[in-house]
Design a protein around this nucleic acid. Structure first.
Length: 225
DNA sequence: GCGACAG
DNA sequence: ATCTTGTCGC
């Protein structure tokens, strides 16, 4: 019964090897980014039920403008390195419900800071064509030197001599977040946006809003409301 | 061989 | 990711 799973994982890796070539690491975002979105997925405890949400914020005020969601079931297991295959399908279905696509999307996970340089942020960006940034709470791979304690300080995330992202302190004295290129956004621009979106808390308002939305929706759903 | 391993 | 109580602090 593991043969099918192994085949599925092998196919997913091949997909990554193919799609990774389509990632664009330079700035190709609009001159004036007006909307920024956060995406997240929450899972029900003893089932495969899940809910994905896309929350659109005004890029200047950071006020929530729109929330769309999708209820479904997980069809792929959680495997480090193949995370996007578990979350992307539901995220795409939620995204389709938006009448207007956001100018930029911040993902809760890695972008190029991935073993095959193709984390969730890259996958979502390449599939939709929307500029994306990866902003993870923990590191998947790469090393970084001593990081100053103040907000805004950062160190390069290096893997095999290659800069794959940046460990950035968004709040003085708090643990850093791990930012990497997703699609159509340079690392410098990605870092700027993450800092701009996290003026008060460690995580960007986009991921905080998406996380909150998804947890609330899942709770309401389990209450059959 | 052993441990580590985005969410 | 999810479960899980109280607790310390602004």
């Amino acid at each position: 019964m593991n043969e099918l799973l192994n085949k599925q994982l092998q196919t997913a890796e091949l997909q990554q090897q193919h799609l990774r070539q389509l990632v664009r690491a330079q700035d190709e975002l609009p001159d004036n980014v007006k909307t920024v979105a956060g995406v997240d997925v929450a899972y029900e405890k003893d089932s495969n039920r899940l809910v994905a949400a896309v929350v659109v914020l005004d890029a200047t005020s950071l006020a929530v403008e729109q929330v769309v969601s999708h209820y479904g079931e997980a069809t792929f297991p959680y495997v480090p390195g193949l995370f996007s295959f578990r979350e992307l399908p539901a995220i795409l279905l939620a995204l389709e419900k938006l009448p207007l696509q956001p100018d930029l999307i911040i993902c809760d996970g890695q972008g190029l800071a991935h073993p095959r340089r193709f984390g969730l942020a890259c996958h979502l960006g390449v599939v939709t064509g929307i500029p994306t940034i990866g902003c993870a709470k923990t590191r998947l791979l790469g090393e970084y030197g001593p990081l100053a304690a103040s907000r805004g300080s950062y160190e390069s995330l290096v893997d095999n001599g290659e800069v794959i992202g940046r460990a950035i302190r968004t709040q003085t004295g708090k643990n850093p977040v791990f930012v990497s290129i997703g699609h159509k956004v340079s690392l410098d621009t990605a870092a700027d946006w993450v800092l701009r979106l996290a003026p008060t808390y460690r995580l960007p308002e986009t991921t905080r809003a998406a996380d909150h939305a998804v947890k609330t929706l899942l709770k309401l759903h389990s209450l059959k409301i």
